[in-house]
Design a protein around this nucleic acid. Structure first.
Length: 233
DNA sequence: CTTTTCGGCTG
DNA sequence: CAGCCGAAAAG
């Protein structure tokens, strides 16, 4: 992915020249605190730029800004890759969305969505994967492929390692919405007899869709708390 | 091996 | 019908 033919798309997230060989999808610093997020700036809308444009450019505006709208930066492949599509509301602002249209096969014409995490540049194929990542800073990984490795008798490994399953990297990274770190959350019960709780941040209610992330983080934190409590006792 | 693309299941 | 995810195909 981050190989040679990187296009301007990469410029947005300013992917570092490092090689993310799929080995690490971790942010450079998992210990980053809320608010200390090292972001590649959130699409600075060049407001009062110091380097203003020449004053002569009053309304010499050519047909440049008129025709282009809705953009459609196609790629070389017959598979179109549109970038500026409407973003799902559950997706954190800083993530990159990519929409691909299948070019061939029985399912041609189908639109697939892909999501890119801005810091690590990891790719996700579904909302579930993204949420999973938001919860447990790790990607879903394939379990032991066949659990084979050395079926030969020469490896009588009857040892069972620690119960820690070695699944994915269990790094307890806490990602969440890096672009919007709240300082306090107030959970309010919206229904008296039901388990309907909604997060409220600084007085503003979180929309239902976005709530998923909050729920994810909440459960994650809860588990950590519980874990720590056990250790403490 | 990794990454990309499609098939086909499921809700 | 849309979303997901496994897995084949491609590099």
């Amino acid at each position: 992915m981050n190989k040679a033919p990187m296009t301007e798309a990469a410029a947005v997230s300013s992917t570092p020249p490092e090689t993310f060989t799929g080995a690490d999808c971790l942010p450079p610093d998992p210990l980053l605190q809320s608010g200390t997020y090292i972001d590649a700036e959130t699409t600075t809308p060049n407001k009062g730029n110091v380097s203003d444009l020449p004053p002569a450019t009053v309304e010499t505006t050519t047909e440049a800004s008129v025709t282009d709208e809705t953009v459609t930066p196609l790629r070389k492949n017959n598979r179109s890759v549109e970038v500026n599509v409407e973003r799902p509301s559950w997706l954190p602002e800083s993530w990159k969305l990519e929409t691909k249209v299948r070019a061939s096969g029985a399912t041609a014409g189908t639109v697939d969505r892909y999501y890119y995490e801005p810091v690590s540049g990891c790719k996700f194929r579904s909302k579930n994967e993204v949420l999973y990542f938001l919860e447990t800073g790790g990607k879903r990984k394939k379990g032991t492929p066949g659990s084979d490795a050395t079926p030969s008798e020469t490896t009588p490994n009857s040892k069972k390692q620690k119960k820690s399953g070695s699944k994915a990297k269990k790094i307890t990274s806490f990602y969440f919405d890096s672009a919007n770190p709240p300082q306090s959350v107030c959970w309010v019960q919206t229904d008296s007899s039901a388990d309907t709780w909604a997060p409220s941040c600084n007085g503003s209610m979180i929309p239902g869709s976005r709530k998923q992330e909050w729920d994810a983080v909440f459960s994650s934190v809860s588990q950590l708390r519980r874990r720590n409590a056990q250790i403490f006792s």
